Computed example of a mutant assay.
Amino acid sequence: MKNIFVMLASLLFVLSAIAEEAKEYTQWDTFRFTIDNKNAQKLTKNMRSHIKKFHVKDPLKTRIYNIIYGPNVNELIWVMGPVSFSELDARPESKSHDDDWADNINPYINSYNQSEIWRHMENLVINNLDDKAPSPEKFSCRYLTVRQDQDWEVAKYLLMQIKETLMKTGKVKYWAMMDNKFIQGKMNGRHLMAISSFDKWAEMDDDWEFKKHFEEIYGKGSYKSFSESYSKAFENTWHEIISVNKDMSGL
């Protein structure tokens, strides 16, 4: 009998550990959409109402972002979370939610574009934001397409070097590498995303002396080797600037 209790205790410990591990990751459920500009004010009002009714509490808390620079300018992004896959399963079915979307949102959306799950990559996050401070309103996103023949461990090492260098600059408020959880292939190419917050556009004029800080960590001449490896690891990269749509988000 004693052995049975020991086995049960061990099993509970293992299950608890698995549950804790499952909760450790941080990810967001997102999709992009375009709107009927003739009814932009109507959609803004309806989206704000929808979010206030159904998406103000975690894990379904949602914000809408405008893409203001980049190849997909004028698209909007729905960002919900952070939310785990288990929490998506546990979402209660709501006819009132679905009816509200069908009647008040869907008629004013021209197209639904990419739907993606973005997750923080392990040990590739810098967060110097005050817990009590308001959430950032503007982000710079750098998307990366990983070459098919690339060694994943090499790619992760390069990203870790970037993180360590950014930490050394002492200027980062929030930065994270995110992994697109569903395979994108070449149609999309958004395999990874480096996202960083900024408060004012004037910050774009700052010279963070990345190369200088990098070589102080990894040695003189190391930046050249890093740049060559980076070009081999990633075949495409581009920027996107996004800003929270306060009206739609109900802020």
Rank of each mutant, 00 (worst) to 15 (best):
K168F: 01
S229A: 11
K232V: 05
D199T: 08
M178Q: 04
F198H: 04
Y157S: 15
K186R: 13
K232H: 14
A194P: 00
T169G: 07
Y230H: 10
L166N: 02
N188R: 09
Q150A: 09
A233L: 03
F182Q: 14
E216F: 08
G189P: 01
D205M: 09
D179S: 08
D149C: 01
W238M: 07
K186F: 14
M177K: 01
F198S: 03
N236K: 13
Q184F: 00
H213Q: 07
L158A: 08
Q161T: 07
A233T: 10
E153K: 11
K171Y: 05
V172C: 05
T165A: 07
M204D: 11
D151P: 05
D179P: 03
K173P: 02
S197W: 01
L192G: 02
S231M: 09
R190Q: 12
F182E: 14
D151M: 09
Y218N: 11
K224Y: 12
H213R: 06
L158K: 04
K224P: 01
K224T: 14
G185V: 06
Q161H: 04
Y230A: 14
K212W: 06
K171M: 08
Y174F: 15
Q184E: 11
W208D: 15
D179C: 04
M177C: 11
T237H: 10
I162P: 00
W175V: 08
K211N: 05
A202C: 01
K173E: 11
K163T: 14
K163R: 15
R190E: 12
T237C: 07
E215M: 06
N188L: 08
